[in-house]
């Protein structure tokens, strides 16, 4: 009986691991700050966690609310803030990548229609493995000066 229980437990545990591997990326703190209505670009910040044992690579992101979505990295270069498009974003096993002000961010290019606070947006992430994950969020009025302060303190 005891043996059977532990056997069943083992099966249960392994199936959890499989399940976790299937939905290996989790998205937290998804933030899409409202921008001026004339803005041709918006931005999305979030924490992306890879809870699997394998590295995951985001190859492409798309959204029905935007013409194009790109991953960008902001860095200081020659005294200027420079943005660089990234072809992919690799997330190591059991690691979290933070997309936040002053660093990595998802650039949302050319809204199909102007978006304001409360409007829903969807983002579909295509991984190198072919896996697709869709998340939804909404545009919010965000105090960027606050998140920046946090960013500054934590790093």
């Amino acid at each position: 009986m005891k043996k059977l229980t532990s056997y069943l437990l083992l099966i249960a545990l392994s199936s959890i691991t499989i399940a976790a591997d299937k939905h290996s990326l989790s998205f937290k703190k998804i933030t899409v700050p409202e921008a001026p209505p004339v803005a041709a670009v918006m931005v999305a910040y979030m924490d992306i966690t890879n809870s699997s044992n394998k590295a995951k690579t985001i190859k492409q992101i798309s959204s029905p609310q935007f013409k194009r979505v790109e991953i960008h990295n902001m860095s200081m270069s020659d005294g200027m803030m420079k943005m660089e498009q990234m072809q992919s974003l690799k997330i190591k096993p059991r690691a979290t990548v933070k997309l936040e002000t002053g660093g990595l961010h998802i650039m949302l290019i050319k809204p199909v229609k102007p978006l304001k606070h409360g409007d829903k947006i969807e983002l579909t992430f295509k991984l190198a493995s072919g896996e697709l994950t869709t998340i939804s969020s909404s545009v919010q009025k965000v105090d960027l000066t606050d998140s920046h302060k946090h960013h500054h303190h934590h790093h």
Partner: peptide, 17 residues
């Protein structure tokens, strides 16, 4: 520039504050 997703909106919010 207005096609600036990250740095400029932050700077504008700072100016607003």
């Amino acid at each position: 520039f207005t096609h600036c997703p990250d740095v400029c909106p932050l700077a504008m919010q700072v100016m607003k504050k």
